[in-house]
């Protein structure tokens, strides 16, 4: 089960260890093309499953276990999940250069598209046609945000404490106008302490759970 740390140079070592896994040879061009395509087609999110299907199932670039290990890292770190996964895969396959190229290729297509739309907006945003059009766009954007609240709430609420944390966070930001970084610095230690591993009670249960699905 040892999941290899991002260290693509480890392959030349003989297969004597317990993992017979060989990091596949992936050219940098292939990486650029792969993540560029994902960046191009990353409409509307929901990409994690898509990346897994392509990189794990189709290309065999990493095992399922490695993928979920990466996902577990990315989920507790700040930043967009898709970007984190891409960097992890890039680094896993081709080291630092691979990570940099993965980041660059996944970001370039949406960057260009969004810049283009932004310039269109500032050029034509004031006329009544685009105002009407944007009313619909922002209304849907609001619906999407609301759905994210539901999804995040469903995943995070497992007790009264979680509900209290949601409300306190909301009030600090909404009424206290506190910035995100300070909210996190203030609340994260409290919440982590609250959810601290309790060895004496159920340490064994936690250990048995192991890695996420």
């Amino acid at each position: 089960m040892p999941v290899e740390a991002p260290n693509p140079d480890a392959t030349p070592q003989p297969v004597s260890s317990d993992t017979p896994r060989v990091s596949p040879e992936v050219s940098l061009w292939e990486l650029v093309f792969f993540f560029g395509l994902i960046g191009l087609t990353s409409f509307g999110g929901g990409l994690t499953a898509y990346i897994r299907r392509l990189a794990v199932t189709q290309k065999g670039w990493l095992t399922d276990e490695e993928f979920f290990s990466a996902l577990a890292i990315v989920q507790i770190l700040p930043g967009a999940r898709v970007v984190g996964i891409s960097i992890y895969i890039g680094n896993h396959l081709r080291g630092l250069l691979g990570a940099a190229l993965a980041l660059l290729s996944i970001m370039t297509p949406p960057f260009l598209l969004v810049c283009f739309l932004g310039l269109l907006y500032f050029h034509y945003g004031e006329n009544s046609d685009s105002k009407a059009l944007l009313a619909g766009v922002t209304a849907v954007a609001c619906g999407l945000m609301a759905s994210m609240v539901f999804e995040a709430g469903q995943k995070s609420i497992r007790g009264v404490f979680d509900v209290v944390m949601i409300i306190v966070t909301f009030l600090l930001v909404r009424l206290g106008h506190m910035h995100v970084q300070y909210v996190i610095l203030l609340l994260a230690p409290i919440a982590i302490w609250w959810h601290r591993p309790r060895h004496e009670i159920k340490g064994d249960d936690l250990n048995q759970k192991g890695s996420p699905p």
Partner: peptide
């Protein structure tokens, strides 16, 4: 997770 939920809210 609850902190991010509050922020998204």
């Amino acid at each position: 997770m609850p902190i991010s939920t509050g922020l998204i809210l």
